[in-house]
């Protein structure tokens, strides 16, 4: 643990606990994370009994060296991006805890649980209404987007 920056230290702790006690349906690709602690890939299963039952998703977490004071950059990656009113087809997620409502007491695990719950409460699989325009015009980094959080029902 010596020689690690505070953010790496905390990420190492989080990685250990996520590998040891992962929440149901969530698993971390330990190999990728151990190579570079600032880039994680998390696999996520659609919860049974919801619209995403049987589906597999991949989340990418990118951390800055200001983590946990600065929120991680979280996007869906891979070939299956969930069709959801708050998930754009490029993988960007409209979720307040990823920007404005981030707190250093949150963790990779709590972000994963929020995303699982966001998917599970979905009633109709559809893309956000401004998907085509957003995907064409947005920055690669979703944290650069000025998100407008208006719908807390899903």
């Amino acid at each position: 643990m010596a020689g690690m920056s505070p953010s790496e230290k905390r990420l190492q702790k989080e990685l250990m606990s996520l590998m040891k006690e992962p929440p149901p349906g969530v698993s971390v690709d330990a190999e990728i994370a151990e190579q570079n602690l600032l880039l994680w890939i998390i696999r996520m299963e659609g919860v049974s009994g919801t619209l995403y039952e049987g589906e597999q998703f991949e989340l990418q977490f990118k951390f800055s060296n200001k983590y946990p004071f600065d929120s991680p950059e979280v996007t869906f990656v891979g070939n299956n991006i969930p069709v959801h009113p708050h998930v754009y087809s490029n993988g960007h997620i409209c979720l307040s805890i990823l920007t404005d409502d981030w707190s250093p007491a949150l963790s990779v695990q709590s972000v994963c649980l929020s995303i699982v719950s966001m998917l599970s409460s979905c009633k109709e699989k559809k893309r956000p209404p401004d998907n085509a325009f957003y995907v064409k015009t947005c920055n690669k980094n979703p944290k650069k987007t000025k998100w407008w959080y208006h719908d807390d029902s899903v």
Binding site: P6, K9, R10, K13, E14, P68, A105
Partner: peptide, 12 residues
């Protein structure tokens, strides 16, 4: 017991 005295930010 140890975890009860962990900082909520750095987890140490």
């Amino acid at each position: 017991d140890d975890r009860m005295f962990e900082c909520n930010i750095c987890l140490d």
